[in-house]
Simulated scan of single mutants.
Amino acid sequence: MTATPARPPFDEAVARALDEFSELIVTDMSATDISRVRELAAPFPMAELTMHGAFTREEFALTRPEDGTALAVVVYTPVGTKRPTPVLLHLHGGGLIAGHADSDTPGLTQLMADTGCSLVVFDYRLAPEYPYPAALEDATVVLSWLAGPDAPATVDPARIVLSGVSAGGGLAATTALFARDHDGPQLAGLLLMCPMLDHRSDSFSARQMEGAGSWDRVANVVGWDAYLGPDAHDREVSLYASAARCADYSNLPPTFIDVGSAETFRDECIAFAAEMWKAGGDAELHVWPGGTHGFDFLTPWAPMSRDAREARTAWLRRLLTRV
C-alpha cells in the first residue's frame, strides 16, 4: 500500500467549504465527467454581473479569421466614466473543458470598481470539441481587437492587463507569450490567479495533492488530454500550448501570480515566477497558506480570500500608476 503523502493543512474556512460544497470538488474524474463539470458553470443574475448597475454591459460579435464564425465578447464599463479606462481582458477558468464568458465575473467586479478598470470577457472554444490551438486563437483575436481601432472608445488600448483564473490563467500566460513572439499588442500587465501552466501534471505539488482539494492531478490530466490529445503529459508540446515549456521568460509584462499552498498548481506557479526573476522580469508571487485551488472563489467570505483580493487590487493600482 502506498502511504498518503504529508500535505500542507487546509485553511480552516477552506476545509469547511470543501466539506460543505462537495458538488464543486473536481477530483478523480475521467473524460466521461466533462459534461457534469460543465453543468457546474451556472449563469449568474444580471444584477450580480453588473454589480447592481455599477457597470454597463455591452455584447459584441467578432469574427474568427480562420473560418468566419462568430466569437462572443462582453465588455463591462464603469458607469459615468469620462475617459478611456484601463481594461482587464479576462479568460475564465474551467480546466479548458468547461466554463463560459461570465464564469468569473462576480468575483472580479469589486477589483474593477476599486481600480476604475473595464472588464472584457469572452467565450473561447472548449476542448475536446475544439482542441489546441482553438482557445489560443480566440484569445489572440480578442486581444488584437481590443488593442485596435474597432475596440470600444471607453477602453484604453495602451493599458490592457491580461488576466485569467486556473485554465484561463494558463491561457493568459500562453497568449502573452504568443503576443510577445509574434509582434502582438503590448500588454501593460499579466494577472494570473492559480494558473494551469504545465501539461505534464507531474510537479511535486501535483503528486502531493492528488485526491485532495478542489482540482487534483487526475482532473488536470483529463483537461490537458482534452486540449492536447491523449497522453499529453508524455509528449513535448509548444510553449503556446503549455506555458511551462517556455525556455525564454524575458520581455514579459509585469506579472502577478497567486496560488494556494495546498493545491495542485503550487509548484508550477512558483517555478514560473522564479524563471521570470532569473530572466530579469517583474513578477509578484503570493502563496496563500492553506489555500486550495481557487480558494477565494470557493470561500469569498474567508479572511484569507479577502487578503488575496486586496493583494491583487494593490498590485493593479501600482501597475496602473506606471503605465
Results as ranks from 00 to 15, higher is better:
62 L>G: 07
173 A>H: 08
21 F>K: 11
156 D>Y: 05
276 M>G: 04
27 T>C: 12
285 L>E: 07
77 T>N: 12
111 L>Y: 01
119 L>T: 11
107 G>P: 06
90 H>W: 11
62 L>T: 07
199 H>P: 08
247 A>I: 07
166 S>K: 05
285 L>Y: 04
229 G>W: 13
166 S>N: 13
214 S>Q: 14
47 A>H: 09
116 G>D: 12
130 Y>Q: 13
137 E>G: 11
163 S>P: 10
83 R>D: 11
193 M>T: 09
246 C>S: 14
293 H>C: 02
196 M>Q: 14
62 L>I: 01
242 S>N: 08
200 R>S: 14
193 M>W: 03
228 L>H: 07
259 V>P: 05
40 L>F: 04
214 S>F: 13
51 M>R: 14
102 D>V: 00
181 D>H: 05
70 A>Y: 04
316 L>N: 02
155 V>F: 02
254 P>F: 03
169 G>A: 07
191 L>I: 00
9 P>V: 04
249 Y>G: 00
232 A>N: 11
89 L>A: 15
280 G>T: 04
200 R>H: 11
39 E>I: 00
187 L>F: 06
281 G>E: 08
323 V>E: 09
298 L>K: 06
214 S>K: 06
131 P>L: 05
19 D>N: 13
70 A>D: 15
323 V>A: 10
2 T>I: 01
63 T>L: 04
150 D>C: 02
71 L>N: 14
78 P>H: 06
272 F>G: 06
261 S>T: 07
50 T>S: 12
128 P>E: 01
321 T>Q: 14
58 E>K: 15
265 F>S: 03
26 V>M: 03
280 G>Q: 07
288 W>K: 00
317 R>W: 05
144 S>I: 00
168 G>A: 13
41 A>Y: 15
200 R>T: 15
313 T>L: 03
259 V>A: 08
64 R>Q: 14
304 M>H: 09
